[in-house]
Write a protein that binds this DNA or RNA. Structure first.
Lengths: 111, 111
DNA sequence: TTGACATATTCCTATATCGGAATATATTTA
DNA sequence: TAAATATATTCCGATATAGGAATATGTCAA
């Protein structure tokens, strides 16, 4: 078996740095493909292909405006990643606690 | 060019569902490989290979205990993913606002 | 030292990727 | 209708994967 398809879920789709860039740009405002081509500095077919992956997993939405296809980020699609990573939050909290404890111990020692 | 290596960063490493499961298990407590094999129900070589990927990107830490290798999640490695997804939070907030507004409008209409 | 146990590594193969180049499709304008 | 513009799709090739099978490495115990 090979690696899971990039279109299998948001985790796989977002693993590609260009696609993350695209999502960042399209989170600010909707944009036509051509603008992404310029902003990213990569070939138009590449952009279209990345957009297809993002569409397939529901991370972007499109509407047609004349001959322009206006893309925008669908932030809801990113939420599962956020929720998953968030489950590890308590472990960072522990670290902060430890740092705080160390700082207080230092304090007591008069350093 | 092919897809980026699974070991190129946390985003790629975490795209594999098994590896996410492993991280979840090792977030609770450190475990030897054999325990993961049982809990995941997959072959030992597969587990070892997934662990190698996770080690390479710094998502797990290991210590030896006799012939057992004790693995545990290094939550700090997940933080970049959390931070990235979090940048889209404001877009969900908008949605919540809209839902709240709709609810309030309904209220005013006496529904 | 030999065996038993725990884990890691290597070899294999089917599959999917990404970028590049070329081309197809769709829409507007002249 | 033809040309121009904007985007999508197809074909190509090099590459890396995940799992399975077999094997290597490392550690403890008798």
């Amino acid at each position: 078996m090979a690696r899971a398809a990039t279109t299998s879920d948001a985790f796989n789709a977002v693993a590609e740095p260009r696609r993350r860039e695209i999502l960042e740009l399209l989170a600010v405002t909707e944009l036509p493909v051509g603008d992404l081509v310029i902003k990213l500095g990569i070939e138009q077919p590449s952009v279209s292909k990345h957009l297809k992956v993002l569409r397939d997993v529901g991370l972007v939405r499109v509407r047609r405006n004349g001959r322009h296809m206006m893309y925008r980020t669908n932030a809801e699609g990113i939420r599962p990643l956020y929720e998953w990573t968030k489950t590890f939050e308590r472990l960072w909290a522990h670290q902060l606690l430890r740092i705080k404890e160390r700082a207080e111990a230092k304090e007591l020692r008069g350093e």
